[in-house]
């Protein structure tokens, strides 16, 4: 298998995903609106002054990831379900190798997550009065989190697209897989908010990168089984 042709196939799948998403904007609307609606509810009901100073580090980092994760869940499952709904999955199987399909869909989910984080995190900091001292640390945690969440979401989306009752199954299958990841992401975000030192974020970051890397590698190996079944 030539690496350059695999790369071009992956980019072609990514291009197809981006074009079809920009045409319909279903996933973008779902993720963006879900994120903003949840943020508005949280900010309106809790806001920057309802939480006591000693509880702020724990609660604000946990609330941020609750908003980000559930907003992401509302849109990331579509990446394979839409192929089954539109009966285009068979064509895609013929047109591209499994690894290229996985890479294209994974990159698309990664872009969606980066867009969601770019939209929600600054708004959250502004509306909730969340002061982040270690900006570099937070960016690293968010980047590692996006890579790991995109990996788990893409493979689970592929699994559920082959089952009935797909939309509800996505949350059921995803939550147990990403709970350890979310625990480490919340821990990392809290550490980044409280300290400018990068060393404060490192323990959580190591965990996130290890779990994200492991999920990504295993997903790459499992995808052909799921895709061709």
């Amino acid at each position: 298998m030539r690496a350059s042709s695999l790369l071009s196939e992956s980019l072609a799948v990514l291009g197809k995903e981006l074009t079809s998403e920009l045409r319909s904007r279903v996933a973008l609307n779902a993720i963006g609106l879900f994120g903003i609606t949840t943020l508005v509810v949280v900010a309106y009901q809790i806001g920057p002054y309802q939480i006591q100073e000693k509880d702020r580090p724990h609660l604000l980092s946990a609330l941020l990831w609750v908003i980000l994760f559930f907003a992401a869940t509302s849109g990331l499952a579509r990446v394979f379900v839409k192929e089954e709904d539109a009966h285009t999955a068979k064509t895609l199987r013929l047109a591209a190798r499994p690894l290229a399909v996985f890479a294209g869909k994974y990159l698309f989910n990664l872009i969606l997550l980066v867009a969601l984080f770019t939209l929600i995190v600054p708004l959250y900091c502004a509306l909730m009065g969340y002061e982040v001292r270690g900006l570099v640390g937070l960016v690293l945690v968010l980047a590692a989190g996006a890579v790991a969440l995109a990996a788990s979401s893409t493979i689970v989306a592929a699994i559920i697209s082959r089952a009935s009752g797909s939309t509800t199954l996505f949350a059921i299958l995803s939550v147990p897989l990403v709970l350890p990841l979310l625990v480490m992401l919340i821990q990392g975000t809290r550490a980044a908010a409280g300290s400018v030192e990068l060393a404060a974020v490192l323990p959580a970051l190591q965990g996130i990168v290890s779990l994200g890397g492991a999920l990504l590698i295993v997903s790459v190996f499992l995808f052909p089984v799921v895709w061709h079944e």
Partner: peptide
């Protein structure tokens, strides 16, 4: 839940095997 959602036996077996392997990755972290 996944096994219940897939009526076809072969597909059920493959998908649940894939999910079991994926879930096992999180085990050392837990």
């Amino acid at each position: 839940a996944l096994r219940e959602a897939v009526p076809d036996e072969e597909r059920r077996a493959s998908l649940s095997a894939a999910y079991a392997i994926l879930a096992f990755v999180t085990m050392p972290f837990l």
